[in-house]
Design a protein around this nucleic acid. Structure first.
Length: 589
RNA sequence: GCGCCCGUAGCUCAGUUGGAUAGAGCAUCUGCCUUCUAAGCAGAGGGUCGUGGGUUCGAUUCCCGCCGGGCGCGCCA
């Protein structure tokens, strides 16, 4: 890509001037304002600062050594020491033509592919998937798509919650209060009802709680009846998950739930004890602070009334049961043995950040050599709030079910499409409504910075205008409409060898196309899909402006060819970009 | 109490190693469909980037204090 080539030349020039300089932070990025040029670097200012040099003098020296004449007319020194690059129009058109021939789509596959495990979605058995699950599921899926696109080897694993203390209550409920007809109608709703009934009883009556605990003990001991019921609950839940994932277009390479790791948990604890990493305390087994960091930063310490006291990561309860810390440790070990990843990414609510700090540190102490070979990364995200600023609930206080949200989105989209395009067949309208509605929901969740909480609103989540998926899909559909007509008029592809960028709207769109790869890389590096959302929104904006100002089919000769080329490449990038966000496109809408 | 996160336009939010005049959507106002899909476009108004200091060529971004809000601190996950 052009900016990469410029970066390489620039680094060489910096090394020429300052042989011992570290050039890894010397980057070439798009100019914030086209009046400065196409690309810029501000890195020379920090290089100069670190060496107490005059930044403009350094810039002058670097420019003297810099040969960018192949791509740029001139390189200007501006402001306190910016270097501005202005691309030759030839360099742009040649890049566009290469893209048209399919040699690239404005991004390069990584030169250093990594194996990356992504752990995301992770819904709980016997509970409905609710609006909150859109976050982990959507962000995780977008990340796996982008990282694959960039050439990494990705393994996705849905670590579903299929084990834990809640099954004691569920088993008790199943045995005593199961409504088989209700289970037939809506299994998840019935399981949820059972849990609520028994949970309330347990709160009011310790004897019931004890019964539930006994059911759990029997399950853990391998009781055949309880195992059979437990497996049935998982099966019923998986049916629900598959329905939702099918609608969202999300797939997993593996679905290894928490229970999968049960056989190893005892050994994990024994090993931790044997190596002196964990110790017994009050009948339980836990990992304690090793004193290697200040108390403020030590997740194994907590301050109570001005005193720093131990806050261990428990790996075995005093009743012999294991904690999710134990499961997570066994899971890391399994993943390393099975896939040898360079990195494991956990797309999980930010509120679990302390858990992951403890987990990663504990694993580092347990298996230091293995830990050096893998980057463990918690990619957190914020909450979805209601307009009262509290966690989002329906008016009656229930969580909003994900399936209901998708239904509502598709319904609203159908209303819009039937108004805008009543001539389409009902089947076409329904298909458009499906793609637009689901896309709107996914995009609305991907657009905010993942770490901030955001306020949910039906209107915003399901909006069909502004910075939304439908706006991007619409841009794509308009381009496809042009090509349906262009195809009728004959073969336009032959003319692509002769193009000439003239109108400012053409140049603006072309310049922005070049930066697709930067957006993808930023998403991969920072695990922030919103960078891609914003890039695509800007691209669609450039297209909309171009579309108003530059007639395509009415133009002739080189002008027509140029505009068709820009349309084609914009359509490809929009499609590829939306696909990387897990959002479908439509030929018409 | 201790720790972490947040505070940007009326509302909801972006803002990529600190970088050039802080952006978008919604809402408000003014124009644009006999012309490739108006789910659109062009334009206007709207800001002490919570606040007070500091660091420096340069701070929404980094550091410290304060004010306001959220979250975490369970032998749950």
């Amino acid at each position: 890509m052009l900016h990469t080539l410029l970066e390489k030349q620039l680094r060489a020039a910096v090394t020429d001037v300052l042989p011992d300089a570290d050039t890894t932070s010397v980057l070439v990025r798009p100019c914030p304002d086209p009046k400065f040029g196409d690309y810029q670097t501000n890195a020379l200012m920090s290089v100069a600062k670190a060496r107490k040099m005059n930044p403009r003098q350094l810039a002058t020296d670097v420019v003297a050594k810099l040969d960018a004449s192949q791509w740029c007319d001139k390189v200007e020194i501006a402001g306190a020491g910016f270097l501005n690059f202005r691309l030759k129009t030839d360099a742009i058109t040649q890049t566009l033509q290469a893209a048209f021939r399919g040699e690239h789509l404005f991004f390069a596959k990584t030169a250093t592919p990594r194996t990356i495990v992504i752990d995301f979605s992770s819904p709980n058995v016997a509970k409905p998937m609710h609006v909150g699950h859109i976050r982990s599921t959507g962000i995780g899926d977008a990340l796996q798509r982008v990282l694959r696109l960039l050439g990494h080897h990705v393994v996705t694993d849905n670590h579903i919650g299929d084990w834990g203390t809640q099954f004691g209550k569920l088993l008790l409920g199943w045995k005593q209060s199961l409504d088989k007809a209700a289970l037939e109608r809506d299994a998840i709703a019935e399981l949820e009802r059972l849990y609520k009934v028994i949970n309330a009883e347990c709160d009011a009556n310790p004897a019931r709680l004890e019964e539930a605990k006994q059911e759990l003990v029997k399950l853990q001991a391998g009781d055949a009846d309880n195992l059979a019921i437990w497996k049935e609950m998982i099966r019923l839940s998986q049916v629900q998950f598959d329905t939702i994932y099918g609608r969202l277009g999300v797939k997993f390479d593996h679905t290894l739930g928490e229970s999968y790791y049960n056989p190893w948990l005892g050994n994990v604890v024994n090993d931790l004890l044997q190596r002196g990493i964990a110790k017994e305390s009050e009948g339980a087994v836990g990992v304690f602070s090793d004193g290697s960091m200040p108390p403020k930063e030590d997740p194994f310490l907590v301050n109570r009334d001005g005193e720093w006291v131990a806050d261990p990561a428990l790996v075995r309860k005093s009743d012999g049961g294991f904690n999710y810390m134990t499961t997570d440790l066994a899971t890391i070990e399994y993943r390393l043995k099975t896939w040898s990843p360079n990195e494991i990414i956990y797309v999980v609510d930010d509120r679990q950040a302390p858990h992951f700090r403890k987990l990663f540190l504990t694993f580092g102490r347990w298996q230091p050599d293995a830990a050096k070979r893998v980057k463990l990364r918690h990619v957190g995200f914020g909450k979805i709030l209601g307009d009262d600023g509290k966690p989002f609930k329906t008016r009656s206080g229930d969580t909003v079910k994900l399936g209901d949200l998708l239904d509502e989105a598709v319904e609203r989209a159908l209303k819009v499409v039937s108004e805008k395009n009543p001539d389409l067949s009902e089947a076409q309208q329904r298909e458009i409504a499906r793609v637009v509605g689901i896309g709107a929901v996914k995009y609305a969740d991907l657009l905010p910075n993942r770490q901030s909480d955001y306020v949910f609103s039906w209107d915003k989540m399901l909006a069909m205008n502004g910075n939304t998926a439908p706006y991007l899909q619409y841009a794509y559909a308009r381009i496809r409409s042009i090509f349906r007509k262009a195809d009728e008029a004959g073969d336009w592809r032959a003319a692509m060898s002769s193009i000439q960028l003239n109108a400012p709207e053409e140049i603006g769109m072309a310049r922005h196309l070049l930066n697709f790869g930067l957006a993808l890389e930023a998403v991969g590096d920072e695990c922030r899909p919103n960078f891609l959302c914003n890039y695509l929104y800007e691209l669609a904006g450039y297209f909309a402006t171009f579309y108003e100002a530059c007639p395509v089919l009415k133009a002739e000769g080189t002008e027509r060819a140029t505009r068709l080329l820009l349309c084609e490449l914009t359509a490809r990038v929009l499609k590829q970009g939306l696909e990387a966000l897990g959002i479908e496109v439509l030929e018409q809408m």
